[in-house]
Simulated assay, not measured.
Amino acid sequence: MNFEWTAEESAFRKRLQDFLAATLPEDWERFSQHGPASPALTEYARSFCGKLAEEGLLIPHWPTEIGGAGADPWRQAILAEEMWIAGEPRGGQYMNVNWVGPTLIRYGSPEQRARYLPPIAQGAALWCQGFSEPGAGSDLASLRTRAVLEGDHYRVSGQKIWTSYAGLADTCFLVCRTSEDRKKGISILLVPMDTPGVTVRQIPSLIGEGDIHEVFFDDCLVPIGARLGEEGQAWEIIAYSLTNERLGIPRYALARAALDRAVQVLQAQDEFAAEAVRLEAAHCAALCEAARMASYAIIDRRCRGEAIGAESSSARFATIMAERRVAEFAVEYLPEALADAHPYLKMHHQRGIVAGIAAGAAEIQLNIIATDVLKLPREPR
């Protein structure tokens, strides 16, 4: 792997940094504490993403025939890193450009692509993913939300939980059961959130503003044209989507930026000389670099056209470790940050504290690594 950025890649990063400096409001660090799914940040993100789109910076990694620039995965990684270092001003729309749009490009019907891709490309859409359920958190094969075909509509009944952005989303990427087969009986429906019978309830959050919800589907009628792909194809589609999702969330970049900010504050306060503080900062930096390299190795494989499998979970868990350690470092040595003394560090803490839950629980990632990467037996022999 070449560890040097090309001149073009460096120029692209500088262009993004200049755009952020010119576009984000002066009180952005404090404003960003609202949280990615808050009404305030969601409203701001629509304006921000619209400006990104005008500059050709919202979907540069999409194919040119869809409105993108055909940029390679390294440009996508640079874009995501700079957005996360800034505190992700795209809000929940990062999902749109990272995996919802690309999944629709690959599996959507012409009608679905015509309906959903333009609003995403303009920065005017917000999606949520209806995956987890009570009793079926990250085990999608156990889901019970059912879609029964009746003529030219599906009748959908069930419940989803821990659904990010559902309270303000336009459309739900809904995973549901269409037959009894454990895996082949799962399908995907694209369900407008204003469909009669859809009810959203916010789950209270211990920190910041609540980003997660319960979603209930009570005999919702969804047209058959809203099905993405074929019946029973969900497993293949989800595998493709999650690979894009996990590599498109470089939380390690925010963690490293927060660590650097914390060290600068400690140095300014003459509190960085102690060996214990310096050693812990070094541990945090090492974890951030390990997460970055694990992600870069997978991006390199994407550029080579190689298939990516369960090893993406290794990169995901490395990022979880980095985020948690940096958040703990700030709490230990700069606790005043949680009382608004250092807004950037508080923002990172709010993002980092859920790192092991969002985008797949840490324990589930470890199970995947154990069984699919290390090939360990599921039960003692």
Rank of each mutant, 00 (worst) to 15 (best):
G356D: 12
C172F: 12
W62K: 03
M193G: 09
H153E: 10
A268P: 11
A21C: 07
A276E: 14
R90M: 14
G56R: 04
L287P: 01
A22E: 13
C176F: 00
R182W: 05
P204R: 02
K51Q: 08
L242T: 10
L189S: 04
G352H: 01
L57S: 05
A339N: 14
T64W: 08
R227K: 12
M293K: 15
S205A: 15
I188P: 01
I353H: 03
T195M: 02
L149I: 06
P102I: 07
K160R: 15
A358V: 15
W62T: 01
K375A: 15
A339I: 06
G360R: 00
L168K: 02
T319H: 00
Y154D: 03
S295C: 14
R115W: 02
G356N: 11
E231D: 11
A339E: 12
F329W: 06
P63M: 00
A327M: 07
L254R: 06
A327H: 03
A274Y: 12
A362S: 09
R90N: 09
S138C: 14
R261C: 12
K183A: 08
A141M: 13
I188M: 07
Q76N: 12
L206T: 10
E26L: 12
P250L: 01
A294S: 15
D152P: 07
Q33D: 07
R46Y: 03
V198R: 06
C220Q: 01
I299V: 15
E43V: 08
C49E: 05
I203E: 07
W235A: 05
A226G: 09
Y44K: 01
A234D: 02
A226K: 00
I85N: 06
R115D: 12
L57N: 03
G70I: 09
D211F: 03
G356S: 11
D260S: 10
T103L: 04
A327C: 13
A281R: 04
A7H: 05
H283Y: 14
P223F: 00
E332F: 08
G137Q: 06
I249W: 14
R301A: 13
A262L: 09
P36C: 03
Y333E: 02
